[in-house]
């Protein structure tokens, strides 16, 4: 195991955050041949489950790998959570873009924005399943980073967020649509489509986006339990930069084409979506049917489901 090269601003043992993947510990640099190309990878182990994450040296910056937040940054997160910040966009597409951008950038404040934005939105109306999942993913990443940043257990980190979001002794307020940004309103988030497109290569979400993309982008689809398409996760895009392997926790069988898996995936705003920007009115989707049904194996961001019968 060699030490990271000068182009890599991290040292062995550093705890870093990989956007959408969570906190990882750097353990070295490794040369590997991928598709006939010899590449140097920064190798890390995701702390949550021991999965090995490898990022080509040349991509370390562009994937947004960064050091774990400082205590001061966590304090800023608390301040933000307490503040009366902007409400989420009522236009679900705009919102999805904004949140996908925040998740892809992976800053701790961005995670807090996703959590708080969706939380406040849920005080107006229930979240569609997709956003409920996003909320959980962002919450998970936020909580684990606070836990690492402050050196406190995760349950304390989560409660530290929630004594703010669910103030003690008070019920959450009921919101009215008037408090939120009208659809098509100002674009203060500044996350344009180009930006999303830029992020796309890193957000190879094949695993979670079934190949019926157009449906996927409607709010209706957002609300429905995912229908699993043929497994596409094993596909390596030309731009593929990340390899996740398992060590120990049985996540990804070795020998399978490398794939990146994590929890904390944003719904992918597909470029194709642009062409479809118009359709489907916004507004409540037909009630998401309570899904207690079993999701088959490859649901996003979770370890491969065991199929074993319950009990």
């Amino acid at each position: 195991m060699s030490a990271p090269s000068p182009q890599i601003p991290f040292a062995v043992g550093d705890r870093v955050v990989y956007p959408n993947q969570g906190v990882c510990r750097v353990f070295g640099v490794e040369a590997k041949e991928v598709a006939g190309q010899k590449l140097t990878f920064l190798t890390m182990k995701r702390e949550e489950d021991g999965a090995v994450v490898m990022v080509p040296q040349a991509k370390v910056q562009s994937v947004g790998l960064r050091k774990v937040a400082s205590a001061q940054e966590v304090e800023k997160v608390y301040t933000f959570l307490r503040s009366d910040s902007d409400k989420a966009d009522l236009d679900w597409k705009q919102r999805a873009r904004t949140n996908a951008g925040r998740m892809a950038q992976g800053g701790i404040l961005g995670l807090a924005e996703v959590v708080k934005g969706l939380q406040v939105l849920s005080e107006l109306r229930p979240l569609p399943n997709k956003e409920r999942e996003l909320y959980d993913n962002a919450r998970h990443l936020l909580v684990s980073e606070i836990s690492v940043a402050l050196g406190i257990p995760e349950h304390d980190a989560e409660d530290s967020v929630d004594v703010i979001l669910f103030p003690v002794g008070r019920e959450r307020p009921k919101r009215t649509a008037a408090e939120f940004k009208a659809p098509g309103g100002d674009e203060e988030m500044g996350i344009g489509e180009d930006m999303i497109d830029l992020e796309s290569p890193e957000m190879e979400i094949p695993a979670e986006v079934p190949e019926a993309p157009e449906e996927e982008t409607t709010e209706e689809a957002l609300a429905l339990p995912k229908v699993e398409g043929p497994p596409t996760k094993a596909r390596l895009s030309d731009e593929e930069v990340t390899v996740t392997q398992t060590t120990g926790s049985g996540l990804v069988p070795q020998g399978k084409p490398p794939l990146k898996r994590k929890r904390g995936r944003p719904p992918k705003p597909k470029p194709a979506e642009k062409a479809h920007a118009a359709p489907k009115k916004r507004g409540r989707p037909p009630k998401a049917k309570p899904l207690v049904e079993v999701h088959v194996p490859k649901k996003r961001g979770r370890p491969p489901k065991a199929k074993a019968k319950k009990k």
Partner: peptide
């Protein structure tokens, strides 16, 4: 519990 952001 005393947490960094308040008491739980």
């Amino acid at each position: 519990r005393a947490l960094p952001s308040g008491s739980a």
